[in-house]
């Protein structure tokens, strides 16, 4: 029990009769980076608002460092650093004024916790007299992180902190998170970027209000035993269209500069595919087996959910 940072049991929540979260249970260990991976509308924000005590769960219970998020919401707020999905600092105040204000609100000062936030703050310092509203997306995100760290929280709850932020800023952001983790901070975050899963210690794949799978990124990929064949070609889309006509009806998806083919029960060999494409005039293809990533797993799982009709929507 000592090592558990967050514990959730059977959390459910509905808005206007629409199920947003359905029986969510998980545990986050102290000091780990735990990611909730899922698209918009999966329920990530609702879940994080429940964890940060901003809304009440309908069913189930959640504890942050052993504190019930409903009864002990004041204590929970004191030990968590929550960053909302939307930039929620004062746009008309400067970077420095924002930090100073929130430091006072939490009864602390910038210098008192400077060691903790210095890595993040150093990036912001050149712009400390700029109004927060005029910062770029990446800088806003860093300012929001700074704000969340100002009271030396035990755990960070970051909701969609990297959404809409460019690839370079995202990399920097992750470097900062890993430094914080090295200092012993527990970090829970949500993201819709599947590639960020690899940067987490453990992830939960969230889809339509349910957790489809929890585990380490590698563990999830391995547990699948998916037989994945990767096809590269100059005419990628045409190749994808052809492969969809394969008689064994595998799942065929574009993945960046390649097509991923996951064969069905029958199984497909590299030669099957190569031969099939060659017959149709694709000469330049490279076909090889590959290790599935989180996105492959997510695709397979979510398609399974759709087929089973368990997503409740039926689209």
């Amino acid at each position: 029990m000592e090592d558990v940072a967050v514990k959730a049991e059977g959390i459910s929540k509905a808005y206007n009769g629409h199920r947003v979260l359905e029986n969510i249970s998980f545990q986050i260990e102290k000091g780990e980076v735990f990611g909730f991976i899922g698209p918009d509308g999966a329920g990530k924000t609702t879940l994080f608002r429940i964890l940060s005590s901003l809304i009440l769960p309908e069913k189930g219970e959640a504890f942050v460092y052993g504190l019930n998020v409903v009864d002990k919401y004041r204590d929970v707020r004191n030990i968590t650093g929550y960053v909302a999905e939307r930039f929620s600092l004062y746009r008309d105040l400067t970077v420095e004024e924002n930090i100073r204000f929130f430091a006072t609100v939490f009864g602390t000062t910038l210098s008192e916790n400077y060691d903790l936030i210095k890595d993040v703050y150093r990036n912001l310092e050149p712009f400390k007299n700029r109004r927060a509203g005029r910062l770029s997306g990446g800088m806003k995100q860093k300012l929001a992180l700074c704000r969340a760290l100002i009271h030396r929280p035990q755990i960070l709850l970051l909701d969609e902190s990297t959404t809409g932020v460019d690839a370079v800023s995202r990399r920097e952001f992750w470097e900062m998170l890993h430094k914080l983790k090295a200092g012993g901070m527990t970090i829970a975050l949500t993201t819709s970027y599947m590639d960020e899963a690899a940067k987490c210690d453990r992830v939960a794949l969230l889809y339509n209000g349910r957790i489809m799978k929890t585990g380490s990124p590698d563990g999830i990929a391995d547990s699948f035993g998916l037989d994945l064949i990767q096809v590269r070609s100059q005419r990628l889309y045409a190749v994808k269209k052809e492969l969809e006509k394969l008689p064994s009806a595998p799942s065929v998806s574009l993945f960046g500069d390649s097509v991923h083919v996951i064969s069905g029960e029958k199984g497909l060999s590299l030669e099957d595919i190569e031969g099939f494409l060659k017959k149709r005039g694709f000469e330049d293809t490279q076909v090889e087996r590959s290790r599935p990533g989180i996105e492959d797993c997510f695709l397979a799982l979510s398609r399974g959910y759709k087929k089973k009709g368990t997503d409740g929507e039926g689209y």
């Binding site: 698209p39 918009d40 959404t163 809409g164 819709s192 599947m194 998806s253 996105e295 398609r303 759709k306």
Partner: peptide, 16 residues
């Protein structure tokens, strides 16, 4: 302009 931001992987591919 960023048409697929936050969309799930399957729908993103359908979009493409």
């Amino acid at each position: 302009d960023e048409p697929t931001s936050g969309v799930d992987p399957d729908t993103r591919r359908q979009f493409w």
